[in-house]
Design a protein around this nucleic acid. Structure first.
Lengths: 246, 246
DNA sequence: CGAATGAGATTGTTCTGACATTAAGACTTT
DNA sequence: AAAGTCTTAATGTCAGAACAATCTCATTCG
């Protein structure tokens, strides 16, 4: 029963109808209203309950299937996935993760500027030409030991930002307080060897292995909020994850 | 012009029409008929050329966009993506991914043995003491260029395995034919610098950056089927993923 | 009691149709 | 030459409709 799931549709919203359904069902799953393993009403009934067409409802369902939250089978129905995709690497910041793991991270802001974005940044953040961004580099330490060197570009229309804020807390906390609801991020993990600068910042030797991560985060309105290039000491950092067969 | 792409639709085929379009356009891209950066006809024209409906054509296009081959923009059109396809984070094998992406991987089996598992392997694969496993090292090349050096341990009660099989196809294909239904895998991604052996195998220099991946795969009965240590040239390989907010 | 069959439930596929939104380019005006 | 406006092109969204394929369960038959 859609109504029991607390789904609601706002036809005056700029958010597409199918996407409102996605968000509503996601919220129901994460809040526990829809429990793992539980079955949903069939798509025709769900559509009727929300006064939506079946193709619109199907588009929402397909997206939820693709994101691993639902599983569907012809003749059987739709079910909430029982073993959710667990990613130790969630859409969160390193600062959050370290703090949540009982460690005390510190941040040193190495550089900070509010500048006009270059073409690559404009493209990545989908900004119009001439836009300015916050561009900064930070060194993250844990227990006094350098762990990560991070360079980020953040669109400047969210909230003002300065070095003191960045020293005191994580970037994502700052952005959340500025009203950002992170929705997803694309990210690429690779490797490189440390150059002289990176080596000195991370208290390691030039040529040692670094894990690299490039990420672009998107909020719930579809805005590309920030993009970053991070490098981590390979001896102190790796990404762990569980993959589930689709 | 769809006809110039060599697309054809077989309505007697059990393959859905939208999927035939996907396969046809993928083939055109990988064969070079559709070059990176080139623009496609608009979806209405393409649909008309193939006697398909617009929603069917859109469904095919959407899948090609999601798989990273096409990029579309309202008011502008559809274009073949210019960047190299990187490995999505799915439970599959490198061999499968490369083959599916139109590349021709080759495998050189560097070592192969059927031996009693050491304690670490027993623990990782949850095998009783005294169990034997297949233990082998392979070099994976793409277009003649070394990409990955892979060392795996596979439990030996699934199917017989030998060097010829491993040279001819991917490990996961072999295991699937042996009846394995992969369910999930745990994996850790990191970085290291190449030692002399790895450097010589991968045709790179000692000290260069390598992406590392350790994985243990589980089948649908809960068995730990295989565990592996892979290293990839960092200049040719990265992991790409999309994280969704919980 | 087990196998076979059929009905019902549900998703999957395809189609026709229409309107909305975005982007680019042409044209006009300042 | 630059800015503004308008038109055109193309994708994005939504709706209604119908048929196909798959799966489960109940019923019937041997």
């Amino acid at each position: 029963m859609a109504n029991n799931l607390g789904l609601s549709i706002d036809r005056s919203s700029p958010v597409p109808l199918y996407h409102q359904v996605v968000q509503g069902i996601e919220a129901a799953i994460y809040s526990g209203v829809l429990e793992p393993g539980s079955r949903l009403d069939n798509e025709i009934d769900l559509a009727a309950q929300l006064n939506l067409s079946r193709p619109t409802m199907r588009k929402a369902m397909d997206e939820l299937v693709r994101s691993g939250l639902l599983v569907r089978k012809r003749g059987v129905g739709t079910q909430v996935v029982s073993s959710q995709v667990r990613r130790p690497l969630e859409l969160s910041s390193l600062y959050d993760d370290l703090t949540n793991n009982g460690k005390k991270p510190t941040t040193e802001v190495l550089s900070f500027s509010h500048v006009e974005a270059d073409d690559a940044t404009l493209a990545t953040l989908q900004l119009p030409a001439g836009s300015k961004v916050y561009h900064f580099t930070r060194l993250r330490k844990v227990g006094g030991k350098p762990l990560a060197l991070m360079e980020n570009w953040v669109r400047d229309d969210i909230s003002a930002m300065d070095e003191a804020m960045l020293s005191a807390e994580g970037l994502y906390s700052i952005l959340r307080r500025g009203g950002v609801n992170f929705r997803l991020a694309t990210q690429r993990i690779g490797a490189m060897t440390a150059n002289d600068y990176q080596a000195s910042m991370l208290d390691t030797s030039a040529g040692s292995a670094l894990v690299t991560m490039e990420r672009t985060a998107v909020d719930d309105t579809g805005r590309r909020v920030e993009t970053g290039h991070h490098v981590y000491r390979a001896d102190s950092y790796s990404f762990e994850m569980t993959l589930v067969q689709r």
